[in-house]
């Protein structure tokens, strides 16, 4: 009884979270151009998608920005984590506090603050400014996923490597880094996702004529979203879903089935 209630509740929440996604997927097969009418099944939008250069360019920009910004943020963030463990507690607290600002601050404020900065620096608004902004809001995600790993690290392993004759650099890459790797990877993935999904900050830091998928959709809202957009987002979502399922399935085989109960 109680369990059924729990299952129904969980199912309802997931329905709530995933209903819009299902809606978009259905719309991507809708022959009618308007959202509100079902005009029969078609895969027309999928083939049209690959002829729509504007959308493909926006997709290219989005992916480029996501990959580059996540990559740069991962490097800077990981180095920052290593550096912070060697710091005095006081300066570490201050730096972590600064790290939290982009996470806790409103995106609109981060967006306009960067916009004001770029204007005063006289930068030309375009891919470059979007990249700088995305790296800025991505670094905290990397730090927050690497830092817990860093804290779990046994400092003796690093010292043991030195003791066994490794140089500082070798010791770091052979001993410390492999332990950090899961955190680094999840940080990268987090950063990539955040960059991909961002609209607000890009909205303020992009230049005219440069669009990511988000900003493209936003400009289309008034005149009506092109159904190709639904097709594209369905494709992206399904691809990610399959990739994640594969990743999640693979290590599951090696794991022991369940934690043994306490005896």
């Amino acid at each position: 009884m109680k369990n059924t209630a729990k299952h129904i509740y969980t199912a309802l929440i997931f329905l709530f979270l995933y209903a819009p996604i299902a809606t978009l997927m259905v719309l991507s097969f809708n022959a009618s151009k308007t959202r509100s009418k079902w005009g029969g099944f078609t895969i027309n939008w999928y083939s049209r998608l690959f002829q729509n250069e504007e959308i493909l360019e926006a997709l290219g920009n989005t992916l480029l920005i996501a990959v580059v910004s996540a990559f740069v943020a991962t490097i800077i963030g990981t180095i920052a984590c290593v550096a912070m463990t060697g710091m005095k507690k006081r300066s570490r607290t201050i730096l972590m506090g600064i790290t939290n600002i982009p996470m806790l601050n409103a995106e609109i404020v981060t967006g306009i603050s960067l916009m004001l900065l770029f204007i005063s620096m006289g930068l030309r608004f375009g891919l470059g400014t979007i990249l700088l902004s995305h790296i800025t809001f991505n670094i905290p995600y990397v730090i927050l996923s690497v830092m817990p790993r860093m804290k779990q690290l046994n400092p003796s392993t690093y010292e043991a490597a030195l003791d066994l004759g490794a140089s500082h650099v070798t010791a770091f890459f052979k001993v410390v880094f492999p332990d950090l790797l899961p955190g680094v990877l999840s940080g990268f993935l987090m950063a990539f996702t955040m960059s991909l999904d961002d609209f607000i900050i890009t909205h303020f830091t992009k230049g005219a004529g440069v669009d990511t998928l988000s900003t493209k959709i936003y400009t289309e809202v008034k005149k009506g979203i092109k159904p190709e957009m639904y097709a594209l987002s369905t494709l992206i979502f399904i691809t990610v879903l399959i990739l994640l399922l594969l990743v999640n399935m693979a290590p599951a085989k090696n794991k022991t089935p369940k934690n043994p109960k306490p005896l």
């Binding site: 719309l27 955040m194 991909l196 999904d197 609209f199 998928l213 979203i225 992206i236 979502f237």
Partner: peptide, 27 residues
């Protein structure tokens, strides 16, 4: 056991653009 799986199912929707997801509520 899969702590990460739970996190995943909440992050997964973010892979569909947030503007589109919100627009879907119009429909």
């Amino acid at each position: 056991n899969q702590h990460s799986f739970i996190i995943l199912i909440f992050i997964l929707p973010m892979w569909m653009n947030f503007l589109l997801r919100t627009l879907a509520w119009q429909t």
